[in-house]
């Protein structure tokens, strides 16, 4: 045993340097956590008194109750509006993002400057939050669901542009070479060489985003851009807690239904193996 210990000292060391560094990092992160919690008011009683009130509020939320049938009707219509906003935003973003994605893809666009510019503008669009876009579009077309659809469209052009261009760059080069070798132009190479190959990937990304956009569309109403968020924010602010939980329940059911449908559609289109790279 001692000879083994002598031969491999590094495996018997109790605390190596790596371990020490890890411990130091861990301690630093923990200290930061405690400091941050103190700064945010975790230790001065807000948390405890708030938790008591939170339980009270959750108690008041149960059971979910819309109040009256008229409310159910209003909520259902605005839920449909929410889904419509998500659908319009997603599809129009997909249509608009495809040309930009082609410009940003290395194997399609040779000019480096065009690629660079389209990438940077996609990055900028993506890093502004959807709620900010909603507020900007409200300034342009006024309050209402139209502004919401435009906001989702704008924010999604950024994400789709990036995802699509990555999918296009990952495409196999051989079909394009085949088409070019028969005398086809660059455009024909893209149309018949790249697009058929990436189309299923793009579709699955669009479907995935449709689902997540339904969630986003349900909150942009909070800033006045249409959909069920408006009623939700109103119900919370006026402390109609049973209505609040009813609306939240409606959103959960709608998102689950769309999740179910879109995964069915995705499997129907691309088979079980096609995953989403997000």
């Amino acid at each position: 045993m001692s000879s083994v210990r002598q031969r491999y000292p590094e495996h018997f060391q109790r605390f190596g340097r790596d371990r020490f560094v890890m411990a130091a990092i861990g301690f630093g992160l923990f200290a930061l956590l405690i400091y941050a919690m103190g700064r945010l008011g975790f230790f001065d009683g807000t948390l405890l008194s708030g938790l008591g009130r939170l339980f009270e509020i959750v108690g008041l939320m149960l059971p979910p109750d819309p109040g009256s049938w008229a409310h159910v009707k209003i909520y259902s219509i605005s839920l449909l509006e929410t889904v419509a906003i998500a659908l319009l935003g997603t599809l129009s973003a997909a249509v608009l993002a495809l040309p930009v994605a082609l410009l940003a893809a290395r194997n399609v666009t040779a000019q480096r400057i065009v690629r660079f510019l389209s990438r940077r503008s996609l990055d900028t669009i993506r890093s502004v939050d959807i709620l900010v876009w909603a507020l900007i579009w409200i300034n342009v077309v006024g309050l209402g669901p139209f502004a919401g659809a435009l906001a989702i469209m704008t924010a999604d052009i950024g994400s789709f542009g990036k995802l699509f261009s990555e999918a296009i760059e990952a495409a196999d080069r051989k079909p394009v070479e085949g088409i070019t070798s028969t005398g086809g132009s660059h455009i024909l190479g893209i149309r018949f060489g790249i697009l058929p190959e990436v189309f299923p990937v793009l579709m699955s990304q669009i479907l995935y985003y449709f689902e997540s956009n339904t969630r986003s569309a349900s909150i942009i109403g909070i800033v006045g851009a249409g959909g069920i968020g408006l009623h939700l924010a109103e119900a919370i602010r006026t402390l109609e807690l049973q209505q609040t939980s009813f609306i939240v329940l409606m959103i959960l059911v709608a998102v689950a239904a769309i999740d179910f449908l879109s995964s069915k559609l995705r499997f129907a289109m691309i088979g079980r193996r096609g995953g989403v790279a997000v």
Binding site: T46, G50, R53, L54, I57, A233, R237, L239
Partner: peptide
């Protein structure tokens, strides 16, 4: 929104 009601 819900937490704002209970925690201020």
């Amino acid at each position: 929104l819900i937490f704002v009601i209970s925690f201020g």
